[in-house]
């Protein structure tokens, strides 16, 4: 009994300690950026995290948008409401699927790479080497990756949503023959700029970007400096990020769109 209590206490303390370390890394890195010389590092990370994630994002967006239109059409055509495909697809993408799917892909594509890179730097003593040269690794390594993620994730989500809606229009209008006027007008009537694009796409994707970057950077920075440790840390990044994205998405939807006030 006592041993069980002790185990619980030990785990809680360890967990709190990890959270505290993660908070310190985050704070230092957040305030570590605003210097002029770092702009190049920052640009390089947006390239690594954002631009290189574009192919997978565009490809997924295209197939998800097309699939939504095809599936929506088969159901809605039965009650003669096939023009509602446009607004249905747009609302689903802007409010939920866009940020969530981009978040999951982003965690798998960019988050894991960041963790592995920082972990390997730690394992090969590059981080301690920098410290010895008087270069702060938090400022030089961690901060650009964190800020790169903050910028890249919303941008990728906007691109994802645009491509997916375009793919839905392609599938719906050009293949299935939905009237283009009804398709676009229904969408314009139903979608509100702040309510759907602002709260749905932008707020959610910024929050997800912060969470995923934070988890992946911290897992790399905090990993065991061995081959196995790096592997575990990379796995943890993808698992924690995915779970966090889905859980936080639920909370955000509850707060922003829940009917109770």
């Amino acid at each position: 009994m006592l041993r069980l209590l002790r185990l619980i206490g030990q785990r809680t303390l360890e967990w709190l300690e990890t959270l505290g370390r993660a908070g310190i890394v985050w704070l230092w890195a957040i305030f570590g950026l605003p210097r002029r010389g770092d702009l190049a590092l920052f640009t390089k990370q947006i390239f690594q995290i954002g631009v290189l994630s574009l192919p997978i994002i565009v490809l997924s967006a295209f197939s998800i948008g097309g699939v939504l239109a095809l599936q929506g059409y088969t159901q809605l055509a039965r009650i003669g409401a096939e023009e509602s495909v446009g607004l249905g697809v747009a609302l689903v993408l802007l409010r939920e699927l866009g940020p969530v799917v981009t978040g999951l892909l982003f965690a798998g594509r960019a988050g894991s790479a960041v963790t592995a890179e920082i972990g390997l730097m730690k394992a090969t003593d590059q981080l301690s080497g920098m410290e010895m040269m008087g270069v702060d690794p938090l400022r030089r390594i961690v901060a650009p990756r964190l800020w790169g993620g903050f910028i890249a994730m919303p941008t990728l989500t906007l691109i994802f949503n645009t491509v997916a809606i375009w793919a839905a229009a392609l599938a719906g209008i050009d293949w299935l023959g939905i009237d283009p006027g009804g398709f676009w007008a229904g969408m314009e009537d139903a979608v509100e700029l702040w309510e759907d694009v602002g709260k749905g796409t932008i707020v959610k994707s910024v929050v997800f970007g912060v969470i995923i970057s934070w988890i992946s950077v911290f897992q790399g920075y905090d990993c065991q400096p061995t081959a196995e440790g790096i592997g575990n840390a990379t796995t943890r990044t993808v698992v924690y990020s995915s779970v966090a994205v889905l859980a936080v998405d639920f909370l955000l939807t509850l707060v922003m769109y829940g009917e109770f006030k």
């Binding site: 969408m187 314009e188 009537d189 979608v191 759907d196 694009v197």
Partner: peptide, 9 residues
Amino acid sequence: LAVRVSGVS
């Protein structure tokens, strides 16, 4: 997304 999808209010 602002102009084509949500229509300027």
